[in-house]
Design a protein around this nucleic acid. Structure first.
Lengths: 212, 212
DNA sequence: ATTTTTGTTAACCTTTTGGTTTAACCATTT
DNA sequence: AAATGGTTAAACCAAAAGGTTAACAAAAAT
């Protein structure tokens, strides 16, 4: 089986096949969604035969599962860690935004992917990522915000709104990228630069709003 | 043809068939996406026969097109109008948020729908909504923001970031609703209330951040 | 009242798609 | 040289989904 192979270069130049497939699948799944994706498309994109696809991954669902979990499991724990870290609020905000923007440079398809899944079946999704009882608890961050309010370091604000605002400003531009690119007449480089700016801009925007 | 009929009640009690179909299609398309939707599902949801579906709308694509355009054309011009209106900046922000939140109460599926389309084929999408040269120009709002900066009424900020922030905070919670609902442990009523609060909260958040 | 048009259905046909199988090929490893 | 694992092309199958047809019922027009 391929899974056991020690990733020896095959005759077809570029990398080992399994990764080629995974990359291709990621691309196709995230562009067309699970239902819209065709096994043939994935095979084509990976530059291989459809039979080989089934040789590596039994069926479409399995392939999707692998691609999807790989992505989500890599990323979600990261932001969860930031939320629950032991750092000052303003620092957390900056960490979150920075981490997220950087991740998107590598996996621009991820947010779309995740949103699709989360809309399809939220519970199933969460379960797959966090397992049985290991659900993420935004409680820590919410409490921290409440603390700051009580301590009078920031103005009175419902922690949930603040959290929503932060997450929304960070993620949405990537989800609606084509819209912004089109309406602000940006090319890819400009978009990247704008997102880079947001690493500073979003924290500033938030802090300016809530700091007393 | 049905389209010409003066909407006379047919034997099957509830309203005219065309609207039944449209409603059903809306529901199914927005839940499962264009590719995931089955004509049979739509027929079932509408409580009619599959053949009748094709009698009213030639094929799947046509039906999708109609449903989709109906929604988008109803809504997009509205926000465009707000952006280009002749009102003070802070008022515009409030108008935008209010209008959007209200619309979502009626069509909670719309943003998902639109994002799906816009990701599938941005140009095609924009063309369908705005036609040939009638593209929306966020220029007006962007300029207005720049004016306010120059006039010293708000702090220095790139208008594009401000616009992105506003749009993101408004739309994203609806797109990622299942995530927020789950993580903040909200029921439907609580979510609605939270969104209602955002009509005031978002403008306040923005204004607190940028007003000098 | 009878003909025509419109609305609706069940059954059928066609295409697409996921998935399998077979035979053959080629590099490595043994 | 033989065995092995990765790979391909091509053909095939079954199921699902889109789309069509023929016939019938209801409503409108004559």
């Amino acid at each position: 089986m391929a899974k056991i192979s020690k990733s020896i270069k095959s005759k077809t130049g570029s990398g080992n096949t399994e990764d080629q497939i995974l990359d291709a699948a990621r691309k196709v799944f995230t562009t067309k969604g699970m239902a819209g994706a065709r096994m043939q498309d994935i095979a084509d994109e990976a530059g291989i035969n459809k039979a080989l696809l089934h040789y590596y991954f039994r069926d479409k669902e399995k392939l999707f599962e692998v691609v999807f979990l790989q992505e989500a499991q890599k990323f979600f724990p990261k932001i969860n860690a930031i939320f629950n870290a032991d750092a000052p609020l303003f620092e957390k905000i900056e960490n979150f935004v920075t981490e997220y923007v950087d991740e998107m440079a590598e996996s621009p398809y991820l947010p779309w992917f995740v949103l699709n899944e989360i809309n399809r079946d939220p519970d199933q999704f969460m379960y797959k990522i966090w397992g049985k009882e290991n659900v993420p608890k935004p409680g820590k961050l919410l409490e921290q915000i409440e603390q700051e309010v009580k301590a009078g370091r920031i103005r009175k604000i419902d922690p949930r709104h603040l959290m929503m605002n932060m997450i929304s400003m960070t993620i949405f531009p990537f989800v609606a990228r084509p819209m912004f690119v089109r309406n602000l007449r940006l090319n890819d480089k400009q978009f990247r630069e704008l997102m880079e700016e947001r690493k500073k801009e979003i924290p500033k925007f938030i802090i300016d709003s809530i700091r007393k």
